[in-house]
């Protein structure tokens, strides 16, 4: 009994830093944000409790559309990232051995040694009207005048896919590496072709990696700010941009906090729907 108590205390002490961290850095700010979000400004310095900030999101098509657009673009980013990352991961995990494997893996990692801002500026240097791609095309005689590649939705997608790649490749490589070659060989041996082995053996095995990669990429894209704003230009229209604008340029913290919560809730809903659709559970994916 005595031992039980002291070991309980020990556990509590052991967990204390984690609990304090969770409480002080995650829970507390959210509680604060929540109270902020249900405060309606009725006049300067006069506030009352109401859901008006939340209603604003649904009543003003502008915000609702922005969110829908952000979500659709993020889903697209996730899908494209998966399509590109899967063959790369398969190649790294299954086709390569030894140093070449480590080399390619580091190559995927390399862009992340510089900050996101620098990476995005890199894309801007490449794609702007007087940039490298445009000048090269002109020099080759493919086009007559300069072409602006920046400030389109496609550019935003390129930037997002690029900055998401690692977060898809890492979980995919690790799940694919855990797939013993003999399963793939058995898949062929029993009459399967490349496509059926991929569908029946490789993808089901990699599913936890696919799902966790997709969740991470989706959330990162949804929450990204720099890439859409810098590459999207005048039409970027990203939901985080709205939150930023409410907080920083409009001083409307109440609205910003409500948008923040809506982002949290709606993105969780989308992830939940995605898990349901792919018949995966979060514990399976993360466990």
């Amino acid at each position: 009994m005595k031992l039980g108590n002291s070991s309980k205390l020990g556990l509590l002490l052991l967990m204390a830093p984690l609990l304090i961290w969770l409480f002080a850095l995650i829970l507390l700010p959210h509680v604060d944000m929540f109270f902020l979000s249900i405060r309606e400004k009725v006049a300067p310095r006069v506030y009352q409790t109401s859901m008006a900030n939340y209603m604003e999101f649904f009543n003003e098509p502008l915000y609702w559309n922005t969110f829908a657009r952000t979500a659709v673009m993020s889903i697209l980013t996730t899908a494209i990232t998966l399509l590109i990352a899967f063959p790369i991961s398969y190649y790294i995990a299954k086709m390569l051995k030894g140093r070449m494997k480590a080399f390619l893996f580091v190559l995927c990692l390399l862009p992340f040694w510089v900050s996101e801002l620098v990476r995005t500026f890199g894309w801007m240097i490449l794609l702007r009207e007087t940039g490298i791609v445009s000048s090269t095309l002109q020099w080759m005689g493919v086009v007559d005048g300069p072409i602006e590649f920046l400030y389109t939705d496609a550019t935003i997608l390129v930037g997002l896919v690029y900055s998401s790649m690692l977060f898809m490749v890492v979980p995919l490589v690790s799940t694919l590496e855990s797939l013993d070659d003999s399963y793939i060989e058995a898949g062929y041996d029993l009459g399967g072709n490349g496509f059926t082995v991929l569908r029946e053996v490789v993808i089901p095995h990699a599913m936890p990696g696919i799902v966790s990669g997709c969740i991470v990429v989706f959330m990162l894209s949804l929450g990204n700010y720099l890439t859409p704003v810098l590459l999207g230009g005048k039409d970027s229209l990203w939901f985080t941009e709205q939150i930023y604008a409410q907080f920083i340029t409009r001083f409307n913290w109440e609205q910003g906090a409500a948008f923040g919560f809506l982002l949290l809730i709606l993105s969780s809903l989308i992830v939940w729907a995605g898990l349901k659709l792919s018949r995966q559970t979060l514990s399976e994916t993360m466990g």
Partner: peptide, 17 residues
């Protein structure tokens, strides 16, 4: 004056969107 910036904010949001 306080409050004007709320009006402007909405306008800027709509132009952006």
């Amino acid at each position: 004056p306080a409050g004007l910036e709320d009006i402007e904010g909405k306008v800027l949001d709509r132009v952006k969107a």
